[in-house]
Design a binder for these strands. Structure first.
Lengths: 118, 118
DNA sequence: GTGATACTGAAGGATATGCTTAACCAACCA
DNA sequence: TGGTTGGTTAAGCATATCCTTCAGTATCAC
């Protein structure tokens, strides 16, 4: 519970970069090696490595080295937590709009005007 | 590579900071003035203003000034787009796991073994 | 062995980020 | 009128981010 905010920091920051999102998109389709990931990316291999290190630190990606090839794959849990944070916010403002609607409903009912229309 | 991805860049980057997520959480509950938002935040008012500017640039928050008070409220669309990007990734890897499962099923069916257990 | 492939580590530089303080303007209020 | 409240601007500073190049190490093919 204490590190939950820091985990979201890392996850959202990882997703804030287009290169890293491209890597996540690629890995959502299938696992891939580091050079597979680097090939379409218009930057040096060390740069891709640094993006991957950040993706691993955030928990979005896991990797395993076999021989000289490191195979990267997606780890869904981190992205799930980010999604749940967003959904929790939506539940809050939906609930607020519901309360507002109920209040306006009640006002119109007491005022004897037309019935609410929604 | 400048428009649509840039919107996600801004949204995820805005959500990567705990102060800005706290502001979004606060505004998900109800609209608030700038100083309402700043009061619990242990930093100067200009710092809060800079976070708000970034939240507005990302489209997560909108504000309106009446008299000398600026009232901020949440704008759900930006967060919705971020959520949809995450959901699209999940659809991809779920589809991949389904294909893998079907493949393993077929292998086991031909081999005459037990079904998969998950 | 030799050479190519796949990755890793270290150092550095340009720019971005997250805060600060100081000064300022624009409503309200007594 | 003068003072307080709410917000805004500008400048500056420490650190973080994103990329580079150069120099490795470890594995594989022959």
């Amino acid at each position: 519970m204490l590190n939950q905010p820091a985990a979201l920091d890392l996850t959202f920051h990882a997703l804030a970069d287009p290169t890293r999102r491209a890597i996540v998109e690629r890995l959502s389709h299938s696992p891939a090696s580091v050079s597979d990931l680097a090939r379409p990316l218009a930057m040096s291999l060390p740069a891709v490595m640094q993006h991957l290190a950040l993706l691993e630190a955030s928990g979005l990606v896991v990797s395993e080295k076999t021989g000289r090839v490191r195979t990267c794959r997606i780890e869904p849990l981190a992205m799930r937590q980010a999604e749940e944070w967003i959904q929790a916010r939506r539940r809050e403002w939906v609930a607020r709009l519901d309360r507002l609607g109920a209040y306006l409903n009640e006002l119109q009912g007491k005022g004897g005007g037309d019935g609410p229309h929604e």
